[in-house]
Each structure stands twice: as C-alpha cells, then as structure tokens.
C-alpha cells in the first residue's frame, strides 16, 4: 500500500516537472535553428577538450571578429580524446563559415593538428548516431 502511494506521488511530481519544463523553455517557433558538425582531428599528441575549444574560439574571433563570432553561436558539445572526434553546435546558416574557421586551425599549444568536418546533422541524436557509425 505504502509503495503504491509513493508511486502515485512520484508520477505526480514528474507531471509537474514536465509542465514546468515546457513552460520555462522557449517555444519551438522562437528557438534558433542549429546544426551539429561532427568533426575529426588528427594531431601529434592527445588534445584536451578545453585547449581545443579555446583554439576554435580564437580562430573564429580572428577570422570573423566579435560580431561574426556572436552570429555563428558556436558551442562545443562533446569531444572524445581517444577517438579524436567531436560535436560542435553552430547556427544553421553559418556552417560554411565555421567550417572555414575550423580549417584555419593549424596548431594547439604548439602541437600541430588538422581538422575536418565529417558530417553535418540537425539534432544531437543524429550526430551521435553518425559518430557511432563512423568509428
């Protein structure tokens, strides 16, 4: 009996959270459209996620300036050190610009690297599926 009550309460809470979650999120029509770039890195040594993000930001700022960087809205979602692949989010109409900025990266803390975009996906789920398929 006790257990059943607990279950009911839990589901109730879940329902409330569910409602709150959607109330606080931006409505889909107002959300910005994004693209997820699956990229691979070839490098002399293992590259840390933070180092890589700093270098990507640096490259975009030096190529397009502050205004261009703000428009491209990049965000490093994930980077796997072992497999040398990662996912980068950007605005849906700035894919080619971000690609050029990634191609301009030649070293991270004096270790030479080369980057390449493997695939572009519309959702994180799609991007992770692509990674699992390719590796």
């Amino acid at each position: 009996m006790k257990n059943a009550k607990c279950k009911v309460q839990k589901s109730k809470y879940q329902f409330v959270f569910y409602i709150l979650h959607f109330a606080l999120l931006l409505p889909p029509s107002l959300r910005e459209r994004k693209r997820y770039l699956v990229f691979e890195v070839i490098s002399e040594r293992e590259i840390d996620k933070r180092e890589l993000l700093e270098e990507i930001r640096d490259s975009i700022y030096s190529l397009y300036g502050d205004v261009g960087a703000s428009e491209s809205r990049i965000w490093l979602i994930d980077y796997d050190k072992k497999k040398d692949v990662g996912i980068l989010r950007c605005a849906h109409n700035k894919v080619e610009e971000v690609r050029a900025a990634l191609a301009c990266i030649h070293s991270v803390n004096e270790a030479r690297i080369g980057m390449r975009v493997i695939k572009i996906a519309g959702t994180i789920k799609g991007a992770t599926r692509l990674i699992e398929k390719s590796v």
Partner: peptide, 12 residues
C-alpha cells in the same frame, strides 16, 4: 596536418 579535405578547401 597541413592537408585539408576538399570541402574545407572550398570553404577556405
């Protein structure tokens, strides 16, 4: 590490 894939070259 200096080589770039064709699509990157097009973007550059």
């Amino acid at each position: 590490y200096d080589l770039r894939a064709p699509r990157e070259m097009i973007a550059l």
